[in-house]
Design a binder for these strands. Sequence first.
DNA 1: GTGAAAGCGCTAACAT
DNA 2: ATGTTAGCGCTTTCAC
Lengths: 339, 339
Amino acid sequence: MAITISDIAKEANVSLATVSRVLNNSGYVKEDTKKKVLKIIKKLNYTPSAIAQSLSKNETSTIGVIVPDITNPFFGQIIKGISQVADENNLNIILCNSDENLDKELKSIKTLRAQRIRGLIISPTSVDNSENSESLKTLNSLGIPVVLVDGHLKYPNFNGVFVDNIKGSFDGVNALIKEGHEKIGILTGRMNSKPAKDRLLGYKKALSLNNIPFNSDYVLYGDYSQESGYHLTKRLLRQKDKPTALFISNNMMTLGCLKALFEDNYKVPDDISLLSFDKIDILNILGIPISHINGPSTKLGKIGMQLLIDALKNKKTLEFKNITLTPQLVLYGSEKRLS
Amino acid sequence: MAITISDIAKEANVSLATVSRVLNNSGYVKEDTKKKVLKIIKKLNYTPSAIAQSLSKNETSTIGVIVPDITNPFFGQIIKGISQVADENNLNIILCNSDENLDKELKSIKTLRAQRIRGLIISPTSVDNSENSESLKTLNSLGIPVVLVDGHLKYPNFNGVFVDNIKGSFDGVNALIKEGHEKIGILTGRMNSKPAKDRLLGYKKALSLNNIPFNSDYVLYGDYSQESGYHLTKRLLRQKDKPTALFISNNMMTLGCLKALFEDNYKVPDDISLLSFDKIDILNILGIPISHINGPSTKLGKIGMQLLIDALKNKKTLEFKNITLTPQLVLYGSEKRLS
DNA sequence: GTGAAAGCGCTAACAT
DNA sequence: ATGTTAGCGCTTTCAC
């Protein structure tokens, strides 16, 4: 990679400035010289150093992306959306995997800062931590636009793209009620998570709007893991007064729930109806379609990146910008009331 | 981010050089001045610019990673492995998603080159393309170490980490034979893919070593998609002389196969035995454990990154280095012979 | 032990 | 229309 702009200049018998001009299509340069320079650039297979450009312009073309679990397809989708829009805008992304670990998250932010990223998109770890102040402080001290994707309680006042969890589960539970269900159980997540809280809220809202009394026996608190989905379901099946339908707050718990149901030879929706938050592609493939509320992950990424780009442009208006996406209700029949 | 090394120098009443020395722990610097400088660095919340450092040292600390589908958990795992090792070595990764698109792949390589990455880890698109020469040429002209992960025919002579597909499917089919199966069907991928080819090879090898005649009726050619798994299985079930066991060359096809089996009320392994290449976590969760050959994806990433780091160190010895991982046979019972 | 100064590859005034 | 030159923020000789 030894070859630099001055090599080109020499070879073409022009000054650095001229080469720089054709490189950036800036200023005046005679058509002929331009051609000559371009030819030599191609001949020498020259690519300008983004590093040097960044230093000179005092501005990089990279943005940072931090996700808690690169292994989870949900985040894969988000990243896909992000990098699509980034590509279109000639931005490249430095990716960090925080691994649901606060320290790593913090370290990543610091590294990214050293790299002089222009902006940051972060989907924070769901780890609950009251000493999050450090993370928050660092984020604030960055002095660059930060966009949250699928946010978290611990970052209250940030721009971001979010999912309307209340509306989502409201719609879902409503669909169950429309089917004639009145005894509707819910498997929910940790109550220090905003999404989980909101999903429970939507559930309650749907009940109350339909004048169905809230029964706390039907609310089972889990932690979004498939294990908890499994155990909660098992417990529910042992209850005397079983619900006829189950609303499950996330995809992992749905898997656990299904496992439990299968083990006990429950058929869906024959013996019990199901509706879940977040889609699980695999279930369709296997021919076990489960009705669900679908949060558009790729879109989350795309819009998040767009938000960031907007912020990058109007440096003045770093005003609060907040987009909430409404998830879609997708019905496959598992919500039907047969029991 | 206005604050620079000279701000620190001024504030501390020392020269740039001294600050640089404490920053890099290089050269001599009195303990006292060191402390003083460090204090001011902290006070001013200063982080040196990696950009400027890179330019000055003529060497970045970033490596490029290109994957064909960030959405696929398999690659998520690989990236996880890569970034783990990268972290430990203070390298950061610029991620590109080629989206199984040759043009994007090429464009990514060029961007990465402009960023002066120190090395590249690439899991090439599986797109078959005889004009791949461009991609290959660019890769060669990079002048930096390139590591292939889970390679492809089109890049014959590159360092990389691969999976021993022959051994893997040999072991798998062997396990079926040990169970007493003699009529073993195989769902395979496209024959221009090296992994697919090798998996078929392993199948044949296992048969021949056990003196079981090869029956071409039992070989069904698909394309690694779940749809093809579904259709091939359907076709197989209509055959007169059905196999008692099925060896399936990848996870997606296995899903399709299961769908077909479920639809026709086949039980595994009661009615037909199954063994698959690549694991599918979801199936275990659902309580449908399928015996499989498990290619260690995170390990692929880790070792790939390690390979790259090695290459980075011994710049002299850019000799051909090639690591092949042997996948593990994991038996859950779906391979048992009951029919 | 510490400082001065050149240079990394490029851009952007400022000249001409 | 093109060249000269001063930085961008840092590292690294070379002096002292």
